[in-house]
Design a protein around this nucleic acid. Sequence first.
DNA 1: TATTGTTATACTCTATAACTATA
DNA 2: TATAGTTATAGAGTATAACAATA
Lengths: 144, 144
Amino acid sequence: MAETQPRLLADDIGFLLSRAGGMVLGAVNKALVPLGLKVRSYSVLVLACEDSAGVNQRSVAATMGLDPSQIVGLIDELEERGLVARTPDPADRRNRLIAATEEGHRVRDEAQELVDQAHSAYFGDLPAEVVAQLRETLGRIVFP
Amino acid sequence: MAETQPRLLADDIGFLLSRAGGMVLGAVNKALVPLGLKVRSYSVLVLACEDSAGVNQRSVAATMGLDPSQIVGLIDELEERGLVARTPDPADRRNRLIAATEEGHRVRDEAQELVDQAHSAYFGDLPAEVVAQLRETLGRIVFP
DNA sequence: TATTGTTATACTCTATAACTATA
DNA sequence: TATAGTTATAGAGTATAACAATA
């Protein structure tokens, strides 16, 4: 029951997780500045690239853990830049399918390089198997 | 070089880390509502409990990754509730040492129980060694 | 001159509710 | 009536600069 005794903040796994998440988020945001993207808009772009038929905004919001209302502005911005397109879903006209344009795919590839560079500052010194284990554990937490 | 090829957002370790951090942060914030605390104020309280001589606000800010100006309000609140006290540092009167009161220690103990309960929803299903490995890896990222 | 704590302010992000169009 | 997308808005959090007191 070590967890129920007084514990240093530096040993608190929730603190460590939030702090590490915030550090990486901030670093990736900085890395994406040259492309005029942030983690949020980059994430939407990546999801739009994953399905050529397009994803609806509700599922984007769910994956990112945001309210659907927050997705609207992100897509507006990407659409104005010609990186994604909203197309009405013929099967259900309430849906609007978000798909990446060719330019969107190009920008996404560039962005991922910048993201990977930023990641390497945090994960680059860790053994590959430790990073793999970290990814797997986080995956189980985020998508149980 | 798998990291430089198109990758699903769900496999992006930075995304997973930020997302998991946000999830746990939100859950712990909710868990602390009954005590009138948030993760931020709880973290300050924990740090104030760690050193009976008191910690200065600069080091609190550094540990939490915040600007010192953001610490002021957190401590104001804890001080008004009688959970911590600001005492001038005799050795350097620019410093104000933040130490927890007896009541502060009591509240901290209660709070940690709530925090641990919230954590168990995310980490409770993982094998103990996986959690230990996660804590160690995150520690290396946060405090390199 | 440099550092600690503080205040002020502008900016971004977040949460919530309400509206429209479709089903 | 229920759902997808949208708009509006108030509140919380963030970043930055400036200031007084002390070193």
